[in-house]
Each structure stands twice: as structure tokens, then as C-alpha cells.
Amino acid sequence: MNWTWFHKWGSPKWFFQKTESLIYWFGFLALIFLVVGLVWGLAFAPEDFKQGNSFRIFYIHVPSAILAQSIFLAMAISAAVGLIWRMKLAHVFVETAAPIGASITLLALLTGAIWGKPTWGTWWVWDARLTSTLIQFFLYLGIISLHQSIENRDTASKATAIACLVGVVNLPIIKFSVNWWNTLHQPATFTLTESPAMATEMWVPGLIMVLGFYMLFAYLVTLRMRSEILEREKGSAWVKAYLEKLNVL
């Protein structure tokens, strides 16, 4: 197998140049998907036969919960790559993605609480799904503060990466909590093996929202990685040339 592409993307300069135009696509697609998904989901999708209109928070709660877990998985894989190949860019991803992951997890928790009150009759319950998601939020906060508390950049990266690998154990617990234990939270509506337990005209806007959330993350994390690269490589010739071209020096 040819691994040249892998090593090329590990180069900060290559990454910076290749994402120059890609980032606009991420932003553009995020905007399109989110606007279409939100308008469709909140205004045009039919209401639920049992929950009425309050089910519509589904269109924000579910994509944010899916994305929050995906970001953690991506961070853990990236952390492993960073540890094994000593690839700095992989660590940059972990460190720039963590605050986004924390915010999205908080969004999932808040929308879940708002949804829980009218349907379940309570804002919060200490069931396995809700508690493991709260733990994920604290893991994100832990990773962020661990990284900030270590002065030396390489040591900080290594410690953060190990924290990600330890925390990734929580992911299958979140995912399968609703199957392993009795919970108030219902099992997943979307699974990879079965068709959604939802009418088509209801899940299509949901899927668009999920894509929109992924694109938004891609946009935000690329933006943050690019500025981190500029900061780290500010002494190098190519960054100076880039900044000169922008007329900021």
C-alpha cells in the first residue's frame, strides 16, 4: 500500500495549502444543510402522533448527540496516530477539536433536558444514557484543561492523547447503555442495520441536519487547525510568504 498521501497530509504546510479552498466548501455546505434541515424539520415535517410538536427538538438533539460522540472517536483515532507516528498535525486536531466537542455535547445535554421536561416529565434523570453523556462532557473538559495545564507543548500533546484513548472507553457505554440497562431514554431510532423507526418525511430532514452538523464541525475544526498551524509555524519561510501575500506584514 502506498502511504505517501498519509505522510503528505501530516505536513502542516501541505494541509494548510490543501484546505485553502476546501474550507469554503465545508462552510458553504454546512450553511445549506443546516438552513434546509432546520426549516424543513421545524416548519414542514409532520408532527409526531404522540408528542406533537415537541418532538421537533429531535432535529437538533439527535445530530448534536451523534456529532459529539463522532468527534470523540475522531479525536481518539487522531491521538493514536499522533502517538504512533509522532505526527504533530494529529495532535493539533485533537487539541482544536476538543472545545468544539465539549460545546456540542453541552448542546445535546441541554436540548435533551428541554425535550425531557414535556415528554418524560423531568429535566434530568440519572439513567445510564444521560449519565454517560454527562461523563463525556466532563471528559472533554478534562482533556481541554489537561492540555492547558502543561507548559511543554510535546508533553501536553502526549498527555492529552493518552487522556483521549482512556476516555474513548466511554463511547461504547453511551452507545449501548440503552440496550444493556433499563433506562428512561429510548433506544436509537437510527441504526446501521435497520431502516429508521420513523416515517420517511420525518427522518430525511434529520439526516440533512446530521450532515449539516458534520460539515459545521469540519468547517470549524479546519478553521481552528489552520490558525494553530500559522501560530506554530510562524517562523517558517512559507508562512512568512503567505502572510506577505495577504499584506498583513
Binding site: 402522533f49 415528554t119 423531568t122 431510532t189
Partner: peptide, 17 residues
Amino acid sequence: DQVLAKHDEEYMPPELV
């Protein structure tokens, strides 16, 4: 002292029901 409703993972528009 308290009763909570558990809802399932199925969603359907009223017309379909």
C-alpha cells in the same frame, strides 16, 4: 411520588397512524 413517561424510538405523523 412521581410518574415519568417513557417514550419509544418510533416517530410517526398522525395521518399515518
